[in-house]
Amino acid sequence: MTVGKDLREAVQTPGPWTTLYTDGTSDEPQAVEEAREERTLRQLADAGAPAADLDAIREIVRDRTGAADPSTLFVLVRDGEVAVREQLAGRRHGPEVFAHDPLPVVVPLLRHRGTMLRYLVVETARDGADVRLETAGHGGVETAESVEGRTDSLPKVQAGGWSQPRWQRHSEEIWKQTQSEVAEVVERLTRQASPAFIALAGDVRARQLLRDQLSPDSSALVVEVDANTRADGADDGALVHAIESALDSTIQREMATAIDASHAEDGRLRADGVEAVVASLQQAQVAQLFIDARLLEAPTGDATDTLSALDAEPWVAHSTDAIEGASEIARLPLAEALARAALLTDAQVRIIEEDYEADESVREERDPRPPFALLRW
């Protein structure tokens, strides 16, 4: 997950900041949408947001163009200027946020971004292909390219005759040449974008020829979909389902791989618990920070539930008593303070979601698990 310069600058800059994390556009009647917009602005006002921030946010929540349904909206505003605005495809990952604080609230955005993987979609046929680069959660296509192959070939099934084998070979060579051109596009986009996987759909023979042309590294990323989505009237349901399954599998696999790495070498590259994680963040040792989703729900009733967010390195501390050259901006909830320090030291933030599968499943009663980190050294 790429954090982005705007978000990094926001968490480094003292506010006050107005943070909004809420549902985006929907297909509700206009009256319902307008009532929800007014509720949003009222809750931000109750949180202390000034008029300039409210005016900026009012324009954003009323802009319904180009957003998927359902969608989620995240906005950071300071002194009436919008610093971060993200319209995210899909439902919220956690509760709404209406805040006006010395520092922005960023964990909800990081949690949502944790599912935003890039992937390639290739829909191929014997006469060409459509290739597009997408990012889950953005609801749009980043890059789209089409390959148009030669059309001077005949179908493989002919009426017969002495020339049929020759035409079959001719057609096969043209199809192979077309898939070679498609492979060049796929290889180039794979090098440029490093997609998590390549969803491959289309004509059976075209898929076979394309896979033969791909490099071993690219071929290993292929998730093949047994559906000819380029045919007239074709249903893309199988492709959508395959992409969703691949996204879930990739996220789970990446999380498991990172956690396994933290246990390697008898845990030499692992920091466990708040004390150890804070010490590692202060040394910029953390490569990946892991936070239990339940920690985001934990109450923050006293100082033991918060950490000091600093205006300079080392960015986070239990207190400022022994920190020279840095002053406290605010005391933040554990998850926010740790995530902020991670962003400012180029560490990746991973939220460990609940592992029960169905909404109606009984949720295990337990306390949040302590944060831990995979270290760089």
Rank of each mutant, 00 (worst) to 15 (best):
M1P: 04
G4Q: 06
K5P: 06
D6S: 09
R8P: 04
Q12A: 15
W17M: 05
W17V: 03
T19H: 03
L20R: 00
D23C: 09
P29T: 00
A31F: 15
A35H: 08
A35Q: 12
R36D: 13
R42N: 15
D46V: 09
D46S: 06
A47V: 06
P50N: 09
A51E: 08
R58E: 10
D63P: 00
R64W: 12
L76E: 08
V82P: 01
Q87C: 05
G90N: 11
G90D: 01
R92M: 10
E96C: 06
A99I: 12
D101Y: 01
L109F: 08
H112F: 04
R113D: 09
T115N: 13
M116W: 01
R118P: 03
Y119C: 04
L120D: 08
V121P: 00
V122P: 00
A125K: 03
R126D: 09
D130H: 03
R132L: 11
E134T: 06
E134F: 00
H138I: 13
T143D: 05
T143C: 06
V147H: 13
E148I: 14
R150P: 07
P155I: 13
G160P: 00
W162F: 12
Q164P: 03
P165Q: 03
P165F: 08
H170D: 07
H170L: 04
H170S: 03
E172H: 13
Q177I: 03
V186E: 04
E187A: 06
R188Y: 11
R188E: 13
L189N: 10
T190N: 08
R191P: 02
S194L: 01
F197H: 00
I198M: 02
A201P: 03
D203I: 05
D203Y: 11
R205G: 11
R207F: 11
L214A: 09
P216R: 14
S218T: 08
S218M: 06
L221R: 14
E224D: 09
E224H: 01
V225L: 07
T229A: 05
R230K: 11
A231E: 07
G233F: 04
D235N: 15
D235A: 12
A238T: 00
H241Q: 07
A242Q: 03
A246H: 02
A246M: 04
L247S: 02
T250Q: 01
T257E: 15
A258D: 07
I259M: 14
A261P: 00
S262P: 01
H263E: 11
A264S: 13
D266L: 15
D266T: 11
L269H: 15
R270F: 05
A271R: 04
V277E: 01
Q282M: 10
Q283L: 10
L289R: 02
F290A: 04
D292A: 08
E297Q: 11
P299E: 13
D302F: 03
D302C: 05
T304F: 10
T304I: 08
T306M: 15
T306W: 04
L310F: 05
P314K: 11
W315V: 09
A317C: 11
H318W: 14
A322M: 08
I323E: 00
R331V: 13
L332G: 12
P333I: 15
A335K: 02
A337Q: 03
A339G: 02
T345S: 13
Q348R: 13
Q348I: 10
I351G: 00
E354R: 12
Y356C: 02
E357K: 05
E360D: 08
R363P: 02
R363F: 05
R369V: 04
L374Y: 01
L374P: 09
R376G: 05
R376C: 06
W377A: 11
